[in-house]
Design a protein around this nucleic acid. Structure first.
Lengths: 243, 243
DNA sequence: CGTCAATTAAAGATATCATATTTGGAAGGC
DNA sequence: GCCTTCCAAATATGATATCTTTAATTGACG
């Protein structure tokens, strides 16, 4: 029950800028200092308002901002209140999508970013993969061969392949970045994939997995990069560019 | 003055989930649909509350969430109100920092992510660099040689070098991702850099710039990657690992 | 052209009601 | 005696309304 005892002693919010901004800064500071961990209970809206010596409204403003950025989770009802959130890749993907939309980044630039992260993921996967890992990857590709006619199912299995690769690589930062990029790209992928092209993609991934199996990181990364560069050129020529 | 006319016709918020969530969804939807662009004026807090047929508090909740995620900017006073925000790399860096902190990602993983993005940036820079670009990079490195004694100034110029490189590469997605990663790493970099080590780093970057000048993208990317891998090993052995 | 006051609009406080969720106990059957 | 089901009370956020305070811009006047 230790996690039901409210953490932290908070400074009464001073209105240098806005009260809510000060509160947000204090809580984020403790998060980055490692003094707050996912699941930690902070108290109720009302009790926190009292702790920061502000009205419930100012506290709400701060809590909305923290909730929107994924720092806290709010549950209502008895036993509810405010807790430090668990990391959620979906939320990060949202943030990435918003900023890249405001920046008006092109699809081609996104694919280049995908190449960068995925080539490194492939390199790391080749360095770390165990025999069961290889079998898992081959299993996914095998199942994918049965779905080359069904664009949606094929895209789903390909996504599973990329996720499995990121998991084997064991680098959360890269996995999370790739997930965000793929989410932004997924609207364009898969729509115009012919069965013939799907088979070609699978053949390339088979070769990549072979390189991973032999532990040849340089070769695996190079194969993945050149394959995705083909995809990029195909997307650039075939599909209508947005913006 | 066209941008002073409030955009959009909004549906009265329906409380499927929460009112504010519905409002956030509506505005984000229009943003992704390209119907809202940075700088667009949406109205005042009060006028928007009326347009969505909710109380001012519900509207505030939504505006706090949108502001925290960087979708809108709020200015107070005459001529103030709510506008679609300009993209801000700092905000994205924040989002990245929060999620990676909650995930408890190690420094070593972050450097691997840096390697991935920076190797690609170097590759693209080699493909796109003009003669003035090369001169600019050499100028930064030249100025940096005078600051090897001053850890802070040296780190600042090195950051400028990375930023210039990202700019030359011309890929916003990669530039923004790198910025987020470097922001998380910057607390650890520079603290334990000796003048001798600083000179060694500069020598490596000189070689990288030479490769970029000859347009040899493969060589430039490889040099950058191997250099950063050295940095990663140095950080792993030298500094105390966090968590 | 600078200064100052009026205006605008957000920030903040307070009180009240509505609604969702959990908790816990009571009733009833096995 | 124990387990399950159901209902009611307690808890905590969601939402509304109204008011005061503070910050910033605008525009007029000197």
């Amino acid at each position: 029950m230790a996690d039901l005892i409210p953490h932290g002693t908070w400074r009464a919010a001073k209105g240098g800028g806005t009260l809510s901004a000060d509160i947000v800064a204090q809580i984020r500071e403790q998060l980055f200092a490692g003094q707050l961990r996912p699941g930690d209970y902070l108290g109720s809206e009302a009790s926190l308002a009292q702790a920061f010596d502000v009205s419930r409204m100012a506290m709400r403003d701060a809590l909305r901002a923290l909730s929107a950025t994924g720092v806290i989770e709010i549950r209502r009802g008895a036993g509810g209140g405010i807790r430090i959130a668990a990391a959620e890749v979906g939320r990060f993907a949202d943030a990435l999508a918003i900023q890249l939309t405001l920046l008006d980044v092109s699809r081609s630039d996104l694919i280049e970013a995908q190449i960068a992260t995925e080539a490194m993921i492939t390199r790391l996967a080749a360095e770390h993969a165990t025999v069961p890992d290889i079998e898992s990857l081959r299993g996914i590709l095998h199942r994918a061969t049965d779905t080359v006619e069904d664009g949606g199912a094929f895209a789903r299995l390909l996504g599973e392949f990329h996720t499995a690769l990121a998991h084997i690589a064991g680098n959360m930062a890269l996995a999370v970045m790739l997930r965000g990029i793929l989410q932004l790209l997924e609207t364009s992928y898969g729509a115009d994939t012919t069965p013939a092209r799907a088979r070609g993609v699978l053949a390339k991934y088979q070769v990549v997995v072979d390189a991973i199996a032999t532990g040849d990181a340089d070769a695996a990364a190079l194969l993945m990069r050149t394959h995705l560069e083909d995809v990029r050129l195909y997307a650039r020529s075939g599909a209508k560019e947005s913006a």
